[in-house]
Write a protein that binds this DNA or RNA. Sequence first.
DNA 1: ATGCATGAGTG
DNA 2: ACTCATGCATA
Length: 312
Amino acid sequence: MVMLKDYNSFPLASQANLFGGLEEGLLSARAEALAAVDMKQSQSGLSQFKHDMMYHHHHPSMTGHPPPNHRSHQMSHEMDGLQMLDPIGSSSMATLAPMSDAAAAAAAASVTSHSHPQFHSSMYSHQAMNSMMGTHPSLTHPHVAMGMHDSESDPRELEAFAERFKQRRIKLGVTQADVGRALANLKLPGVGALSQSTICRFESLTLSHNNMVALKPVLAAWLEAAEAEARRKDRDPDGNSVLPGGEKKRKRTSIAAPEKRSLEAYFAVQPRPSGEKIAAIAEKLDLKKNVVRVWFCNQRQKQKRMKFAAQH
DNA sequence: ATGCATGAGTG
DNA sequence: ACTCATGCATA
């Protein structure tokens, strides 16, 4: 009766040298961790399936953005080819590219299923959700009565789309960062800009299944608009790459290889260590507790990504 | 392309 | 204190 996630939950790949890389100080921890195996999921083993409906956070830019429901548009990306190729100006898309009906419809459909101005993942997914939600009419669910099952959520469909998307994006000479910014110009309800990271992850399928499904219609809409725009070959010399500057730089902490190995070893045996355990690990590895906690969180998220997920 | 981080929403 | 979507910073 344990209703776990759905598309994720695959046995983690235990490397051969899991414990091989452990340092002396970790030996006790190893035993400790092993012992903890049978009593795991002490407090979160099955509290997994919760719906989403996330938000879009903001970035403390100098301008006081009041609305809590809109994304940030950081314009300080200096990616690989951002500066060199940019045929379709970052902002030209907005003014000249009204999306096609098909694209708009697709996007709209995805949005309506959430009822929120911000699309984001939501409850459309799974069987578990279904039963506890008290039958939604049908529109909200992709896999209703007819044989028209979720083509949108079909991993292979997503994979195919991602590939197509990437190809055409490149053909258009647009960078991932460009796409992210252009998204805001499409002005789809609840859809703002996205980062280069997210576009990259979409293309490489390194997002959760839900996330992929939610983003697909939006990116499809952009592609439509972009190609329509390309057809009319309209040059819009709108160079607005002025960096706002004056933002506090975040420093990325880097966990050294040995420590990382240890963390992986711990994770293999107990992916969800308790707060105390995390503190202990942090002390042993001489890392901040928060760093260790976040590392575990991220590691767990990693497991849920599409690419190598079990049911692919 | 990916590691570490944030923050809303949830329990 | 966790999950999830997302992003800055960086390799």
